[in-house]
């Protein structure tokens, strides 16, 4: 290899054609309000965890839709499941339910509120 003093830069773009959308499809099946977000950011503005960290419930939904799921588990660790996002959402998205189902889909059992499962 010759060092020319410069390199070939790889694309910084997300290639949606090649993105792995398994999780997005799974979530769409499991939570019917998933995918109805209009991105107004009220959830994030009111998020108690988002006040102190970069946690952004609005963005998490987009990242799932874009297949960017590598760091999702760590991001979700920041959520305290207080449910304020759900109270605020103008689209009426069941965000707490969405997070719970997401924990399960990502196999994050220590955060899975198993106790409410299956009663209804």
């Amino acid at each position: 290899m010759i060092d020319f003093g410069y390199g070939i830069t790889r694309s910084n773009r997300l290639n949606l054609d090649e993105a792995d959308l398994t999780l997005a499809r799974k979530m769409a099946r499991r939570e019917k309000s998933f995918g109805t977000c209009i991105g107004c950011g009220t959830c994030t503005a009111g998020c108690t965890a988002g006040h102190f960290t970069a946690y952004n419930p609005r963005k998490i939904q987009l990242m799932i839709l874009n297949g960017q799921t590598e760091n999702l588990k760590e991001d979700l660790e920041k959520c305290m499941l207080c449910g304020r996002c759900q109270m605020l959402c103008p689209r009426g998205i069941s965000l707490r339910s969405l997070w719970s189902k997401l924990y399960r889909a990502l196999d994050a059992p220590h955060k899975t509120p198993s106790v409410t499962r299956d009663i209804f």
């Binding site: 108690t48 965890a49 102190f52 207080c82």
Partner: peptide, 23 residues
């Protein structure tokens, strides 16, 4: 209107306790 910081998840898990005092 904000939470005092208790919030079970915030306090019961020591790793989350920073949220509690920050709130």
């Amino acid at each position: 209107r904000q939470c005092c910081g208790f919030g079970f998840r915030q306090y019961l898990v020591q790793a989350n306790r920073g949220y509690s005092i920050s709130n």
